[in-house]
Amino acid sequence: MLARNLPWLTMSKLKRREAVAGYVFILPWLISLLVFTLYPIITTLYLSFTNYTVVQPPVWVGLENYQTIFFNDPSIKPSVYNSVYYTLLSVPVGLILSLLLALVLNMRATGIGVYRTLFYLPSLVPPVAATIVFTVLFEARSGLINSFIRSFGLPAPAWFADPNWSKPGLVIMSLWGIGAQTLIFLAGLQDIPKSLLEAAEIDGANGAQKLWYITLPLLSNVILFNLVMNVIGSFQVFTQAVVIGGTTGNPMESTLMFMVHIYRNAFRYFKMGYASALSVLLFVVVMVVTLLIFRSARLWVFAEKDENA
């Protein structure tokens, strides 16, 4: 600590004044880091080793909560499965579709700005409202989507009433809100120098080749950004799942996301200790997955340094 203080002593008066001002400016955030980040993380960790019902003080129980997670909670398996299923399906499909949409929106056409605006509109609908709208669209017997499917004489699934179809339903619903993600890709596409694509065209590259050899590599950092954000978001999906399946994940725990399970333990059973242990687990998993993605990014994210070299 003393070493850290040394520069302070050697500073000029002006610099010291600037430093003081700097601390004042970031003071709120410093408090926030301590009170709303550091303290809660430590407390969550501590609570995960206790039994705590809020009304009574916490009781230290060692690893019991973690034992329960791994051996004694029948809802763990389905909730982990659901969250992984949802993430593995919604993230790649969402990425690919939003990328395709961005390519479409990147076309030169009159009034393209209007289309871009319209695509973004669904992202404005609050998740609760959007989910309720989709429960109407996906209604098993006479909802719009099933009426459409049946008009081709095809069998229509019961969607949110069928444990095998409720998660695909959730994923489809999530795709409705990819407008924002699409616009991020669009911004990335517009940053790609036209000269590069034209040069490739002159070299005789076709559309697919241009996409594969130029557009995608130059877009890879945007893809990485969207990928990481979506994975973190998908592991924590809550609102849509709760609106559809309540805190028990109807039907048949098929919409019981991990986050819903945490919420249920925290606020239905008031098992704050156990819910904390679940939170710690989710935290670790999200961190590991994020790190793995960043690791893998070395292999597939096009680094601009190489371009300049």
């Binding site: 429960t135 109407v136 996906f138 209604e139 098993a140 017997r141 909802g143 019961a158 949110f160 009433a161 409720s166 559809i244 399946g245 309540g246 028990t248 109807n250 039907p251």
Partner: peptide, 10 residues
């Protein structure tokens, strides 16, 4: 959800 009994939720 629609064809799912409300009672399960509440």
């Amino acid at each position: 959800m629609a064809s799912y009994p409300q009672s399960r939720r509440n």
